[in-house]
Every structure is written in C-alpha cells, then in structure tokens.
Write a protein that binds this DNA or RNA. Structure first.
Lengths: 164, 164
DNA sequence: TAAGATTGAATCCTCAATCTTG
DNA sequence: CAAGATTGAGGATTCAATCTTA
C-alpha cells in the first residue's frame, strides 16, 4: 500500500516546505487562506474549524496566536451570542497574499510536477471521492450568521493562471 | 486543489482511527510494522527513520518510549560503533500482529472502500510517482550492517487475502 | 571532520474540563 | 441540556546543541 507512505510523507514535506519559505506553517496558512476565501474575510470559528479540519480546541489555540500577530481578530456574533466570528485583518490579508504563491509553488513541486496531466485529473477525482466519504461519517446540519456585506476579493483563485 | 484537503484530512483521520481502536498512534504502528518487515526484525535507527519518514530525533524519542513498553530493544552495532540497531521484541511482534488487522481495516474504510478498482490502481501509480520524486530531493548512498541471520516471518503481507 | 544517534527546551496538539448562551 | 468556544495540563514534535565513533 504505497499510498500509506504517501500519507506519511507528503503532509510532512508540505509543512516543512512552508516553514522553510514562509513565516507560517501549513496549518496556519490554511486558516488564513480559508478566511481570505470567505465573504467579508469573516467566518464563524466552528465553520473555520471544519474547513481546516481542526478541532475547535486546536483552532482556538492557533487563532489566539494569529490574533497576537494581528492577522486575525475575533468578535462575538451580534445575532447569536455563542458564535464567535473570526476576521482577517488587513495585515493578515497581506500575509496571505505574500504566502499564497509560495504555497502554490510547494504544492506544484511536490504534487503537480511529478504527475502527468491525466494522473492529475485522476488524483483530483480520487481526492474528491475520499473526502466526500470522510465527510459522510460526521453528517451535520447548517448554521447561519450574518457576515459583513462587502464583497472583498478572495485569494482562492491565485496561481491558477500560472501555466504548468 | 482538492488534494490539499486530502493531505490535511486523511492522515489526521487515519491517526485518529488508530488511536481509537488500538494502543498505538499511526506513527508508532508504522515503526513497529517496519521492524516486523525487516530481516531478523532488526534495523539500524537511521534506516528506520528513513522508512518511517521521521527525523532521527523524532525516531529516537518514539523508540525510547516503545523501549519502555518492552516492544523494542536497542543495541549498538558490533561492526560499526556509531550505528544503533533497533530490534522488535516478542511482545512487540505480538503487538504488531494484533494491530495490523485494525490498521488494514482503517485504511480500507478510509481509502480503499470509497474507490473503485481502477481508481485504486491509479492511486497506487500516483503515490509511487510522487514518493520517488520526493526521495530524489535527498539522494543518499547505501549503508551496511550485519543483521541476525534468521528468517523471521514478516507481517507486511497480512490482510492482503481478506477480499474487499 | 562528518555520520549516526541522543538530549533538552520550546513549540504544537490533544484531551478533558469549563464557561456562556440558546 | 446542547451548541459554540475557550482553557490548561499532559504528550508529542521540532530544532539546535551535543556526544561518540569512523
């Protein structure tokens, strides 16, 4: 089962590459990036935890640290007192903008470049399939909370135009 | 890039499944399993670190703990004083035998079952390709050290006969 | 001097307990 | 009482420094 080795080595290699070339580890980047992809650069903590696949506890600890660095700010939701909304600061957004290309580079070097086009398509389908099976194990309902209404640009599409 | 999400969630899910159903986390299982797949259930620490994709430091810490539980023993290599050989104890081998089916079950549930046969073949090819590219980044020469000469059975083929 | 390995300190993650709000 | 979130303690991981031997 060579894919077990893959699960062991690749995440580790990605994290190491991020630490080397940026001031963020992979998980911190994922959190900031998820916020930058959110409407108003804002999201409830619980949603953010789900997106980043972290426990609420882990996310709390990490966001506390990101807040100390002034990249994120937290505020309780006006319409639902037990929800806390995390918002990317301008400095945090700058950090995402600066880091995103390096993240793309790392993923490209580690995953995309070694594969040919059809393998990349296959991997995308496989990843989608496995993830949806994973999500089925903890089925859960929807949430709702107001978000700032401005339509800030997100960073999720960055790098897609850099041809391989 | 859905495979980034895969790298984030799958290893985490695998590790959690192992913790839940066994007394080992995923990495500890990998270490014991690698030893059980080695001739004489023995290997130099540095080789073991490579196989398990751990730093020597991380391996040292973990093997120290496994040694406390009497699952592994260490001894310096007679023919090369700076090499330390790690050996699986009988109790450690029993532990691997008990845990291996649960590991197989977890991998099956998380990776194999969601995919069809051709996707599984594709994933195997993809994993092999990515791993070999990864290894090329730290090219290194060979080592040599005597190992016990008995041909202990390994556990690497376990579970392969359990039809899907 | 470099390879193999270990150690300790600092950091990160997990788990269980807690707090607040609906 | 349940959902959302946080906290603190205990374990695990990393990084840099160290030790020993070829």
């Amino acid at each position: 089962m060579p894919f077990v080795g893959l699960l062991l080595k690749l995440p580790h290699a990605l994290d190491a590459a991020m630490r080397r070339s940026t001031g963020l580890n992979h998980f911190e980047y994922v959190v900031l990036s998820a916020l930058s992809d959110s409407a108003g650069h804002t999201r409830p903590m619980s949603e953010l935890a789900e997106i980043a696949n972290a426990s609420q506890s882990r996310l709390s600890h990490v966001v506390a640290k990101l807040e100390q660095r002034d990249w994120v700010r937290r505020a309780s939701c006006p319409t639902n007192g037990r929800v806390v909304m995390a918002t990317l600061t301008d400095a945090g957004y700058d950090e995402v903008l600066a880091t995103a290309p390096l993240h793309v580079d790392a993923v490209r070097a580690l995953v995309i470049d070694p594969l040919d086009t059809s393998q990349l398509e296959q991997l995308t389908a496989i990843a989608t399939r496995i993830l949806s099976a994973l999500d089925d194990e903890h089925a859960d309902p929807e949430k709702e909370c107001d978000r700032p209404s401005d339509t800030t640009r997100t960073v999720g599409e960055m790098g897609k135009d850099r041809g391989r």
